[in-house]
Amino acid sequence: MKPSNRLWLAVACAVGIAFPLAGLWHELAERAPSAGKPDRRDFTLSDVDGKDVTLATFGGKWVLLYFGYTFCPDICPTSLQVMGEVADTLRARGEAMQPVFITVDPERDTPQVLRDYVSNFGGAIVGLTGSIEQIGGATRRYGTFFQKQPMPNGSYMMNHSSGFSLISPKGAYVRVFRSDLEANELFPEVEEAMHAWKD
């Protein structure tokens, strides 16, 4: 096969994989909270001190999960700000909520970088990283997709699906929210989902 043909095949494959995956995410996003068996999902990742973290680490608290990366200057800071603000508002009303930021770019997001980054936002956000396999497992379980996108200057970006996943105090996956909402739009949605949920 000529190199140019190989390139086109690679592009075609990437597109062929990315679009159905994006569609699947959309279906997950649209799915209403399930009334039946609780949907339990978990992960094993590391916090900024290198300690293992699973959902049990946040035992008894609601968790709001966001997947992103620090080399994302435009969207991710806004999403983290919104997530932190919602968590602070809930705490002020006596609801224990832990916002969690999971990087999809462990190559650049070292524990130190993560620590510095999340400290710039409210809500006492916990930053988590891990091996590519651990992060891949976590993203799959929460219906999140990411893909490395090389840039002409040799750097790269990570295209990623974007949403806030709500997890109950007993570790049940409740639902995902759009991440382009303002804090005052997201807050009532999250609060409503929490109040409607029976663990």
């Binding site: 569609g23 996108q149 295209n159 699906s161 949403g163």
Partner: peptide, 15 residues
């Protein structure tokens, strides 16, 4: 100059 966009729930940035 870049543009952020969302398509089918995927966030990306394009020059």
């Amino acid at each position: 100059v870049h543009e952020s966009s969302e398509k089918e729930g995927m966030m990306s940035m394009e020059p």
